[in-house]
Each structure stands twice: as structure tokens, then as C-alpha cells.
Design a protein around this nucleic acid. Structure first.
Lengths: 219, 219
DNA sequence: ACGCAAGCGGATAAATTTATCCGCTTAGTG
DNA sequence: CACTAAGCGGATAAATTTATCCGCTTGCGT
């Protein structure tokens, strides 16, 4: 067993590492697409070598960025479990998770390139799975949701809300709330269709259609 | 005004054009991502020049492929309007549209690269808009759906079902039906949560998480 | 069956992306 | 302070992608 007791990075190296991650993050958010490691280096004001030394390729950088975020995401699930009422707990989680998804501009890019089977991510995925299973089991047992509601529905919900978020970021930042509500009603988690958020206008929807300009935003 | 009366292509050229389009389609479907024009040429067994002569760049090819498909999509909307019952008409359209989305493996790739503002596509988009507006107005007037239901909700529905479809193509080809139903219930378009399609298993959901292998499928 | 506009193929140029190597600099220990 | 392991930068090589050009071939109207 090789003792991979890797000592901490030198202060300047750690500083650069952070700078590279923050720059990548900003770049991903600004353009809605990944940037090359060379671009990130230029933008961060460090040499390419410095980037490649720390992140062998784009995948490594993306996975690192995602690992950091995933920690927050896990915390949300843990926090939701605090609720005494199982229905509230699940509702709360679904709303917080969607909000997290909506509040992070770089996240869709990162998700599109992450590798959940890669090392520390796989463990976090499994831990998340346990939290979600718990939330779902309790809510179903309490009759707070359709009796056939399953963990898979939570992930599907996130995929669906994510799809709306990705297309409405810049157009109607709160549009996702309407569909989060619709889904919860559909899942029997909420009774009244209260329509807290109204539908997008035709002009707004128009902007969500596929177009190259929607893919390379600021310049 | 230049009379761009472009005479039909020579028979062999037309044949090649079709071959290129079909090959691109197949490649997109197989790999879940766009291929380069040179790859398409090689796979189709024609010279690169032949491809570039007909399609100046990838965008042109994608837009052409999408235009063809969009015709089908418009026909669905027109057919749905036949229903005497406005609720049935809308329900029927939502289901048919989702099914169309689910039944075409190359479609998500094409959608991700299409340019709806480009010429004949813009006109088709507007025509679709008129059909959808009609379906929605009639359904709302008849009280078959939530009174605040809007055209934007139809597009959002498609984005959401599309998100599920894209991740479950190869894993559970019918999974989207469950969420189409959930959304319809949430929109007040259907009363009973009948759960015709059950949720995916944990193992299936696992396969929908982001991973590079999910992006380059067969090899 | 002739003639030629239209079409074809694919070598190759240009641009972009990806990644390495190595001489110079510096943080941090003693 | 001095020494050295760790880190830095960026020129440049390798791989990939994108696109053009032009000599040869062929469909098809007469």
C-alpha cells in the first residue's frame, strides 16, 4: 500500500489552484459552455503549465468543481431531513435543490461534463442516494405523496426543473418555480394549484428556442 | 430581385445529398453527439468536397435535418386540432409531441445545434406557435385545464419531457410517460393520478447520472 | 453519341485544440 | 541568510478539426 500522504500545496500553488477554479467557473458561467484549459490559463493570468500541472485535463477540473458543489447539495438533503413532517421535508428538499440548481450559472455546464463514476464523486452520489431514499420513504409512509412515488422521481424532477432552468436563466430567472409547483401537484405532494409564479410570455418563450446566440451569450 | 429559381439537382447529386443526410442522422443517433462533416463524408463513402458543396458547414446540415423533422411536428399539432373536445385535443397533442420526441434518437443532438432563427425554420416556428396558441386557448376556454395555463407551459412541458427522454433513451424508453402524466395532472389536464408507467428502479436511475460513457455510447 | 455544365473526390492548407518540457524563480525550512 | 524542493511560465510539438481547390468523371439535353 503506497502511503499517498500528500502534503499540502505550497501557499502560492494553492492560491493559483483556487484562482484557476474560480476563473473556470466564471468562464463557464459567462459563455454557457466549457472553455479550454489554455483559455482558462490566459484569463487567470497564469501559465498553461500551471494549469496542466494541477489539472491533467478538463475532466479533472470539471470533476473538482463539481465535487465542491456537491458538498452543498448533500448538505441540503441532510438539512431537509430535519423537518419533523415527512411531507414538509420532501417538499423543502425539492424546492431547495431546485433553487440551488437555478442559482448557479456554471452548474449546467459542469453537470454536462462531470463524471459521477469518478472517485470522490461516486461516494457522494451514493450518500445522496441514501438521503433521498430516506426522504422518499418517510413521505410515502406518511401518505404525503402518491403512494407509488419513488426515489427515481426525485431525480427526474431535478432533470426536468434543470431543463427549464437552463433555458430560462437569463430570460425569466424564476420561471422554474412554476414547474416545480406543477410537478409537486402532479406527484400529489401539494393539493392546490396556487400558481404562485405565472407563465412566461410569448416573447420570453421565443428566446428559449434553440439558437446559436443562446449558446454563446456575452462576448 | 434575383430570381433564385434553382433548378433541381442532378440525379446523382440528389442521391448523395440524401445519403449524407441519412448518414449524419445515423451517426448523431449512434454517438449522441454531432460528428464532423469529414467523418460523415467518410462514413457515407463520398468525398469531403461533396459534403461541403451541399452543406457549407455543420450548422447548415443540422438545420436541414431539423427542417425535415419539424414538418412532422407541425402535422401533429394540426392533427390534434381535429378533436372536437378541446381538452382531448390538448392532451392528445402533448402526448403525441412527447412521443415524437422520444422516438427519434438523433433529435436531441439536432435540437442542441439547430438555429430556429434561421430561414425556413423561423417560419415553421411561428406556424407552430399559432397551432399551440389555438389548442391552449380552446382548452382554457373549455375549462379543461388550469385557467392560468399558457402556451409557454406547452414548451416548458416539452423541455421537461425532453430532459427525461434524453437521459432514458437507452435505459427505460417509456419512462417519459410517467412524467408526461405527472405534468398533465399538475396542469389540471387530467384528474386521476393513475400511474400507468411505474418509476425507474435505482439501478436505472444510476445510469442516468452524468458520465462520459453516457455521452459516447456504442463504439 | 456528343458536348459540356454539373458534380465528384480527396490531397492538402489553415486554424484550433491539447499537452509537454525545461530553464528560471521562489516559498519555506533550518 | 542560504539552500533546495516545489512551482512557474510559455515556447512549441502533436493531434484534431475545418475548409478549399482543382483535375477528372458523368448525367443528360440535343
Amino acid at each position: 500500500m503506497t502511503p499517498d500522504k500528500q502534503r499540502p500545496l505550497r501557499a502560492d500553488a494553492e492560491r493559483n489552484r483556487r484562482l484557476i477554479m474560480d476563473t473556470a467557473d466564471r468562464l463557464f458561467a459567462e459563455r454557457g459552455a466549457v472553455a479550454t484549459l489554455n483559455e482558462i490559463a490566459r484569463e487567470a493570468g497564469v501559465g498553461v503549465g500551471t494549469v496542466y500541472r494541477r489539472f491533467p485535463d478538463l475532466q479533472a477540473l470539471v470533476d473538482t468543481l463539481f465535487t465542491e458543489r456537491f458538498t452543498t447539495f448533500l448538505a441540503l438533503a441532510a438539512a431537509a431531513e430535519e423537518h419533523a413532517d415527512p411531507g414538509q421535508a420532501l417538499r423543502h428538499y425539492l424546492l431547495e435543490a431546485a433553487q440551488w440548481r437555478a442559482g448557479d450559472r456554471a452548474l449546467d455546464v459542469i453537470l454536462a461534463h462531470a463524471d459521477l463514476d469518478a472517485r470522490p464523486l461516486a461516494g457522494m452520489r451514493d450518500e445522496l442516494g441514501r438521503h433521498v431514499d430516506g426522504l422518499v420513504e418517510r413521505a410515502v409512509a406518511a401518505g404525503a405523496v402518491r403512494e407509488d412515488f419513488a426515489s427515481a422521481d426525485v431525480y427526474a424532477y431535478l432533470y426536468m426543473v434543470g431543463a427549464v432552468v437552463d433555458r430560462t436563466h437569463d430570460i425569466a430567472p424564476d420561471a422554474w418555480r412554476r414547474y416545480a409547483e406543477v410537478l409537486m401537484v402532479g406527484f400529489g405532494l401539494e393539493q392546490a394549484p396556487t400558481a404562485r409564479t405565472s407563465a412566461m410570455t410569448d416573447a420570453q418563450i421565443r428566446l428559449t428556442w434553440p439558437s446559436p446566440s443562446a449558446r454563446l451569450p456575452a462576448d
